[in-house]
């Protein structure tokens, strides 16, 4: 079942066209990886999915992005609600300069709690979900900026899953992390996969191969190829894809 369907997407920063004719389907309960060289529009594409590009003035979008068959760029779309459903983890860990508890509680506090869960329970569930609970359970009042970068990134993931989004977008979530922290995040993604739909941008071919079920290869604002990760990495259809993943790129 497709969760997100992108149809013929064009995106412009002013006069500069950053994305051209992108179409793909993102399946529920799967991890989709987006790879491609720097500046090819991966982040731009990701930010289209939760309309974070709206915050940049002078941008324009053509085409359709359907979330559960609803066009998120419809006039009557509630952007705030959309971003609640489509959460985002950024490249650099960006916890708020508040306590660990307040970071995780931020979303539930502004959006209101649903279900019969108390705030404490939400915080614990989210931190457990992000595999951070055991490390921080005794220091919930500690300033989040005192955590290591890897812990900060897991905190950002905890903050994101606290509001139970349906889709989680991750833009190079491991690029600021060491190999061990990277592994932790990758394991985390596997465990989150059953309940969330994850789209991850990564520069690491190995990471895409390790964690994802589907892979899209971007090049110069276009999507060259999209398919099952295994196929893309063993037997891609396009020559460009092959030269990129084998590192022969010029």
């Amino acid at each position: 079942m497709s969760k997100i369907e992108v149809k013929n997407l064009n995106f412009f920063y002013g006069d500069f066209q950053a994305l051209t004719g992108i179409s793909l389907e993102i399946r529920d309960q799967h991890i989709t990886a987006l790879i491609g060289p720097s500046g090819c529009g991966k982040s731009t594409f990701l930010r289209c999915l939760n309309r974070m590009n709206d915050t940049i003035s002078g941008t324009r979008l053509e085409g359709k992005i359907l979330l559960d068959d609803q066009d998120i760029y419809d006039e009557d779309t509630d952007v705030v609600d959309l971003r609640r459903r489509v959460g985002m983890v950024f490249q650099r860990p960006n916890p708020f300069p508040k306590s660990i508890y307040d970071n995780v509680a931020f979303g539930p506090r502004i959006l209101g709690l649903h279900k019969e869960e108390s705030l404490d329970e939400v915080v614990e569930r989210s931190l457990r979900g992000a595999a951070l609970w055991n490390e921080v359970k005794d220091n919930l009042a500690q300033d989040a900026l005192g955590l290591s970068l890897g812990e900060q990134q897991r905190l950002c993931i905890a903050r994101t899953i606290a509001t139970e989004p349906e889709v989680i977008l991750m833009d190079e979530p491991c690029s600021a992390l060491d190999p061990i922290a990277t592994l932790e995040i990758e394991e985390l993604m596997q465990s989150l996969k059953s309940s969330y739909n994850i789209v991850i941008v990564t520069h690491s071919m190995q990471q895409a191969a390790r964690v994802s079920d589907w892979t899209g290869f971007f090049w110069l604002g276009e999507m060259v190829e999209f398919g099952a990760t295994e196929k893309i990495f063993t037997n891609p259809d396009k020559e460009k894809t092959e030269s990129y993943i084998t590192g022969r790129f010029g």
Binding site: V80, D81, R83, M88, F90, F96, F106, I110, R159, T160
Partner: peptide
């Protein structure tokens, strides 16, 4: 206040003013 804080607030589904009062001003 770094833009990343604002982005984080907005991407959590906070409105512009919620982000300002609860993220930017405290920061």
């Amino acid at each position: 206040v770094p833009k990343s804080y604002r982005d984080a607030g907005l991407s959590m589904g906070a409105t512009k003013w919620q982000t300002i009062w609860r993220v930017v001003v405290p920061a």
